[in-house]
Design a protein around this nucleic acid. Structure first.
Length: 257
DNA sequence: GCGACAG
DNA sequence: ATCTTGTCGC
C-alpha cells in the first residue's frame, strides 16, 4: 500500500501529544464515507517483554465472506510506555509499519482500542483513520471513558446500548456474543456509529471479537515462527530506540485526562 | 479530595 | 498488554 503523507512526528513529549490530540479532534469526520466494502482489515499489537519488541499485525479479509487474503507482521523496538489516553503513540507507528505492507487497500479497518470514545475523542482507531484516510472502527474490550446503562443491555448477541460522555453519544456497548462481556464500539474516522455497529456485527464469527481483529490478535501473539503461508514478516532493527525512561518520569507531571 | 484509566 | 489451570456452561 502506498505510504500516506505523515501528518506529524511520533516522538513527542506528553504535553505535546495531548495538544496534538486536541488538534486532530477537529479533523475527525463522523459521517459515512464508506464506499462499497470488499476488503476489511483488522489490526492489533502484542508486546514481547523478553525482546522489548512490539509486534504489530494486520490481517486483510474479503467481505462479506471473511476469507483471509493477506497477513503481515511488523516488529520493532517498543518506543513508548503505555499511558492511558496516549495508546496511539505507543502502538500506531508499529501498526502503520504492518499496514504499509498490504498490497490491497482496505475499505474499512477495525482496530483494537477506542475510536472517539476517548477523553479527547482521538483514540487509536481515530488516529489511524486520520493518518491513513481510511474509515476505521474502534473495537475495545474494556471501557476507557464514558458510561452506559448496564441494566438495559440485553444478554443476546446483537443487543447494544449507547455509550455516553458529557451528555453525548460517543459509542456503543455491544453484545457481540450471547452471555459474554460486551465490546466497546466507537467510530474512528469517516464513519458513523450506526454503520460501525453494523459492520462489527456483520464481521462476527461467533466469537467476542469481530473476525478481522480476532485474526490480527492471534497473528500478533503467535509465538511460532511465522511460516511463509500468506505471512510477510518484517523486522525494523534500527528504529528509534525506546525513550521510556523519560516518559515514565513525565507521566506524573501532566493531567492525562 | 478520591477514583477512573484502551492496550 | 501479560502472568496462568482448571473449569463451568452452551
Amino acid at each position: 500500500m502506498a505510504r500516506p503523507t505523515p501528518l506529524h512526528k511520533w516522538e513527542l513529549e506528553i504535553s505535546e501529544a495531548i495538544a496534538l490530540q486536541h488538534e486532530l479532534a477537529q479533523q475527525v469526520i463522523l459521517e459515512d464515507h464508506v464506499g462499497e466494502v470488499h476488503y476489511v482489515a483488522g489490526v492489533d499489537m502484542a508486546i514481547n517483554e523478553e525482546h522489548e519488541a512490539a509486534r504489530a499485525a494486520v490481517v486483510l479479509m474479503s467481505y462479506p465472506d471473511l476469507e483471509i487474503v493477506e497477513r503481515h507482521i511488523y516488529e520493532e523496538p517498543i518506543r513508548m510506555p503505555y499511558v492511558p489516553g496516549l495508546l496511539s503513540f505507543r502502538e500506531a507507528p508499529s501498526v502503520l509499519g504492518a499496514v504499509d505492507q498490504l498490497r490491497q487497500r482496505p475499505d474499512l479497518i477495525m482496530v483494537d482500542g477506542q475510536g472517539i470514545a476517548h477523553p479527547r475523542r482521538v483514540g487509536i482507531a481515530t488516529h489511524l483513520g486520520l493518518w491513513l484516510n481510511i474509515p476505521t472502527i474502534g473495537c475495545a474490550k474494556s471501557l476507557l471513558t464514558g458510561h452506559y446503562d448496564k441494566e438495559k443491555l440485553g444478554e443476546e448477541a446483537g443487543s447494544w446500548v449507547p455509550l455516553i460522555s458529557r451528555k453525548e453519544t460517543i459509542g456503543a456497548v455491544v453484545r457481540t456474543r450471547t452471555r459474554v462481556n460486551p465490546m466497546f464500539i466507537s467510530p474512528g474516522h469517516l464513519i458513523s456509529l450506526e454503520t460501525s455497529i453494523r459492520y462489527v456485527l456483520a464481521c462476527g464469527g461467533g466469537y467476542r471479537l469481530p473476525e478481522p481483529t480476532r485474526q490480527a490478535d492471534k497473528l500478533s501473539k503467535d509465538n511460532t515462527t511465522p511460516d511463509n503461508t500468506n505471512v510477510n514478516f518484517t523486522i525494523n532493527y534500527d528504529s528509534s530506540p525506546p525513550n521510556t525512561k523519560n516518559m515514565n518520569i513525565q507521566i506524573n507531571q501532566f493531567k492525562l485526562w
